[in-house]
Design a protein around this nucleic acid. Structure first.
Lengths: 229, 229
DNA sequence: ACTTAGGCTTAACGTTTTTTAACAGCGGAC
DNA sequence: GTCCGCTGTTAAAAAACGTTAAGCCTAAGT
């Protein structure tokens, strides 16, 4: 329903820029990468963006100046700044311009994504990306509705089943680290929560075995990995 | 066109509080003045505000804690903080919570007004605010009047039914945290209030089942989520 | 004062979801 | 191969939730 959000990314460091570009694209965003503030501004005036991510330190035009110019044109577009150091002065200046959030390097991709999505939720409000339909192998899966459409009828997933499956699917073919997962879903990674997670893995395997090409593989001592053969 | 914005002002200093109250009223705003964070929170849950101005230092509950509680219930309402000193730490903490602006005492009335209106422009933009008619799926709902327009006649909601439904609707597709909700509506989150809330969820489900695309989903151990399919 | 009606809470019971326990099998280190 | 910690699975126990109805309080009417 809601279109793919268009992100304007301004970052002069080639490596980081490419990395972010690729990562955000892989998460379903349309991304334009600009190597300096001037180019970013040009892109902004040309395209129709829903979100900005600006490095503070850039040649030609720094992130703050860029943001100020853009604020002139769009009072509401969310802006997230990236900066090399935890410079409080900068941080304040950023917020004064109307930043929506602020990330200090180094940061993890996940953290960036989390903040980005938090802001989008806050901004887009009710009408956010909702009814996305994913596929687990040949099985349709609607994480928002917590429903798995099996051959013999739709199965409503419980909260935990859904959280775990959603994580697996979002990280298909990647290792889902045990500890992180426990902290993400159970809030704490003690022994018992670990066993609880194993129980849920077993439940999911049972549910998904109608499609034999689906495998939830255990990586001994690390975590699990969802594989579609 | 747009109704008079309702401002929630939390300020423990009698003089400043009165001054601001009078000034903002004279500028056409409807203002509620609370003398401490606790009272402010109560007022917030009772009324339907469009803007918050909180003093950071207050007895009972400080401005940040207050803001955090309120952010649980309303992700988007603008919050502007007032503080005695230019404490950068505080400033950052405030923005992290989701402050929209920040004013250091002493400040001029004009400056406050300017910032306030700048934020309102930024926020109101599209066409939000006010006490109008909402839709729950296909069912018209007027929270101010506490009326739900069902197919077979209008149903007048009780206070609690209305508070809970209103919260659910304002947070559509977001988790309504059990604890925050209990504190907001029941004032305290003990076991029995929890059960009471469950009773009201059941009531609402029954009322809303005329539209099968509406679901009040339980998030086990967390709270509830209103979903329109 | 007495009664009534409405609204909220408490109780009770059934159901679902999650955790804990128990035991069997596996995997890598030695 | 042997040992020990990790995983797979199932079942029982515990916690959370869903629902209905009875009880309780308060405010309004008589």
């Amino acid at each position: 329903m809601t279109a793919k959000p268009k992100i304007l990314l301004a970052e002069d460091d080639e490596n980081l820029g490419q990395l972010l570009h690729t990562y955000l694209q892989s998460k379903g965003y349309e991304v334009t990468l600009a190597r300096n503030g001037k180019k970013a501004f040009q892109s902004f005036t040309a395209g129709n963006y829903t979100f900005c991510i600006f490095d503070v330190m850039m040649p030609e035009m720094d992130g703050f100046t860029l943001a100020k110019e853009i604020r002139e044109l769009d009072k509401k577009i969310p802006i997230l700044f990236l900066t090399a150091k935890a410079m409080k002065e900068d941080k304040l200046q950023g917020f004064a311009i109307g930043a929506d959030d602020y990330l200090t390097k180094p940061f993890s991709m996940e953290e960036l994504l989390a903040r980005l999505e938090a802001i989008l939720r806050r901004v887009e409000g009710p009408s956010k990306s909702a009814d996305e339909q994913l596929m687990v192998g040949t099985i349709p899966y609607e994480p928002e509705l917590r429903v798995l459409h099996l051959k013999d009828g739709s199965k409503k997933l419980t909260t935990k089943e859904n959280q775990l499956l959603h994580l697996l699917v979002k990280n298909e073919r990647e290792i889902l680290d045990r500890q992180s997962t426990l902290r993400a879903i159970w809030g704490d990674d003690n022994y018992f929560n670990g066993r609880s997670m194993d129980v849920y893995i077993a439940k999911l395997r049972k549910l998904l075995k109608e499609d034999p090409s689906i495998e939830i593989m255990n990586i001994h001592g690390k975590g699990f990995k969802l594989i579609i053969k």
